[in-house]
Amino acid sequence: MKIVIIGGTGLIGSELARQLREAGHEVIAASPRNGVNAVTGEGLAPALQGAQVVVDVSNSPSFEDQAVLAFFRDSTRNLLAAAKMAGVKHYVALSVVGTERMLASGYFRAKMAQEELIQGGGLPYTLLRATQFYEFLGAIAYTGTVGDTVHLSSAALQPVAAADVSSALARLAMETPRNATLEVAGPEKAPLDQFVRRFMQATGDTRAVVSGPAEGYFGTPLTDASLTPGADPILGPTRFEAWLGKAAKAA
């Protein structure tokens, strides 16, 4: 089966491409660096020719409200049109757990617009919403830095290893379309600040942490339900301590 991965050279896409190739599929890892640009439409038609499945794991280079909305709207419209022309039978896309609960954020409004376009796009589809990746805990600490302290929300989080998200996407891409939205999360749920504190300790970051329910998440307020999955998500097998041990050695 020919499977085209949009954003196929990034964190999720490169691992997804590896897994699908190992399963015996023909994989095109498409991105602007190899001449396929979903935002402009450049290179989409030849990349999708003969494809049965397209998996969109691309992300906006800018998180500014208007820029991120334009990215997801333009890229999704172009992808849907090109996929229809190519006769694609299954459109898979990666989104974010809690999208509908986080609409105070421009990024989440953009992800909701993407989801709505896919749901109404006329192609069989599967949407997979993922919780925050372990790999982005450092970015959360960086964004919450004020002087010599790190300000973090104490709301619940259930983060997941990026490789486990790629594995879930690989399985879904090889299955029949669900025409539904699924969720994937890690095996452990705890306050966000606890995950980041453990990450900081493992990487030798000794800065003080200030946490509480009033602290935001990239500027957006959180509750315990904001970024955690509902009932029966796909659970990635990688526990945080196992991932953290490898990440600390690589740092």
Rank of each mutant, 00 (worst) to 15 (best):
A173Y: 00
A190N: 11
A208Y: 00
S62G: 13
G120C: 02
R178F: 06
T238H: 07
T40W: 11
S62I: 10
L16I: 09
L103E: 06
G120I: 04
E175R: 11
Q201K: 13
E15C: 02
Y125M: 10
G7S: 13
G106W: 01
A110D: 10
T176W: 10
L79R: 06
F71Q: 04
R197I: 13
I140Y: 08
V36H: 03
F136N: 14
T9G: 05
P187V: 13
G120W: 08
E100L: 12
F136H: 08
V96Y: 11
H151Q: 15
G7L: 01
I3W: 03
D65I: 00
V210M: 13
T220Y: 01
E215G: 02
E115Y: 00
S211P: 02
G24P: 12
V210A: 09
P61K: 13
L69V: 01
A139R: 15
A38I: 03
G236V: 07
E115P: 07
A17V: 08
E42C: 07
L80M: 06
D224E: 11
D56N: 14
T76G: 07
A130N: 08
A168D: 05
E215Y: 12
I6S: 01
D56W: 01
E100I: 11
L123D: 11
T9P: 02
A185G: 07
R21F: 03
G50Q: 10
A93P: 05
E115T: 08
R197D: 11
V146A: 14
A214N: 12
R178P: 09
P229K: 01
E183T: 07
V54Q: 01
V4K: 04
Q194A: 08
A251N: 13
G236E: 02
S75T: 12
R33G: 13
E42K: 14
G219V: 02
G138F: 02
Q66F: 06
Q119T: 08
R129E: 11
V196I: 15
A225S: 11
T220N: 08
F133C: 10
A29N: 09
R21C: 11
A141E: 13
A163N: 12
Y134K: 06
A231N: 15
